[in-house]
């Protein structure tokens, strides 16, 4: 009985998010709509961006190489030329909005709408411009190999934990240039300090840890940002993201982990957030107050970076490839061989 009620509550919540997405979509103005080019079976990428111009060339190059066919982008009022740059790309459709990022649940409402409209029946990848998706065999197999395999395994969602990458030395020391692989600068990560808890309500795992816990939140570990994500989903118009790509409804999509001792296949989102662009961004975000939980994260960054802007430590690990992440136990091949 209780579980029936819960299911019903979840159903309502899912519907409410779909209504929100509908309401919020009116603020989206198409800049260039090339969605007619989308063919069935295409793998689609959805993303929101704001003043990320410098990252975009590499971002496109990276995901094109993996085999993403079309990019659907929401531009949140960029003023750095990023919107115009994206509009010129043959495989990009872009919408723009001046509406509040916070008011759209940090972009979730906008993307939920676009996914519902264009993502139905496709494998959809939702990533930020500073996230690079890594999966088992990504150096030898295109993303299509993964999604085909997930299809035959009748799996609808694929988890990829966020792995914060940082440089050795001050983060403002080296300037990141357009088109450059951000991992050349921010090539280090924390290999083994993550904590996991199961979220009873949605069934997903709540993962925290990494440099942000270690350096910014050692005294308030509960406040540290969540790192669990489910970016790759075989989308259905009834699905909805609840909070960023951390949580999905229906709840079954959150079960990207095994509870009986085995390992499911999983990937990693390399989070190249900590580049020289970060300091300016943090300050701006602080001004706008448009981020999660009153931008507590950015406040903490601003304080910390004033005195010791180095996230690197003796036990930081330099990124090599997915096999390294697999051996470290951060991701898994699962049953895929």
């Amino acid at each position: 009985m209780v579980s029936l009620l819960q299911s019903y509550a979840m159903r309502l919540r899912r519907k409410r998010h779909r209504v929100r997405a509908f309401r919020k979509h009116f603020s989206l103005k198409p800049v260039v709509d090339r969605t007619r080019k989308i063919r069935s079976g295409d793998i689609l990428l959805f993303s929101t961006m704001r003043d990320e111009f410098v990252r975009l060339p590499f971002f496109l190059q990276y995901y094109r190489a993996l085999g993403v066919s079309h990019f659907l982008i929401v531009d949140n009022d960029s003023s750095d030329g990023g919107r115009e740059f994206m509009a010129d790309q043959p495989d990009v459709s872009i919408w723009t909005t001046k509406a509040s990022y916070k008011g759209s649940k940090f972009g979730v409402d906008w993307l939920n709408w676009l996914q519902r409209k264009y993502g139905h029946g496709h494998w959809t990848l939702v990533v930020d411009p500073d996230e690079l998706f890594i999966y088992p065999f990504c150096d030898t197999r295109p993303i299509r190999a993964l999604t085909d395999w997930l299809d035959t395994s009748q799996v609808k969602s694929f988890g990829a934990m966020l792995l914060d990458m940082y440089p050795k030395g001050r983060i403002d020391e080296v300037r990141y240039l357009p088109g450059q692989d951000p991992l050349e600068i921010a090539g280090w990560f924390d290999p083994g300090n993550y904590v996991i808890e199961k979220n009873r309500q949605y069934g997903n795992l709540w993962i925290q840890g990494g440099p942000r816990s270690r350096v910014f939140f050692p005294d308030r570990p509960k406040k540290a940002p969540a790192l669990n994500k489910t970016p790759l989903v075989r989308w259905d118009k009834r699905y909805t993201y609840i909070s960023s790509t951390h949580t999905l409804l229906p709840r079954g999509l959150n079960l990207t982990y095994d509870e009986w001792g085995g390992e499911k296949a999983s990937g990693i989102l390399l989070h190249a957030k900590f580049l020289n662009t970060f300091t300016a961004k943090a300050e701006e975000e602080l001004q706008r107050g448009q981020h999660y939980a009153g931008s507590v994260e950015y406040k903490s960054y601003a304080e910390k970076f004033q005195d010791s802007p180095d996230l690197w430590c003796k036990w930081s690990e330099k990124y090599i490839n997915w096999r390294q992440l697999e051996i470290l136990g951060l991701m898994s091949k699962g049953n895929w061989a």
Binding site: I196, I207, T256, Y257, E259, G261, S266, G329, L330
Partner: peptide, 9 residues
């Protein structure tokens, strides 16, 4: 090993 895709009961 406890990780994102292995979290046994």
């Amino acid at each position: 090993l406890l990780m994102q895709s292995r979290f046994p009961v």
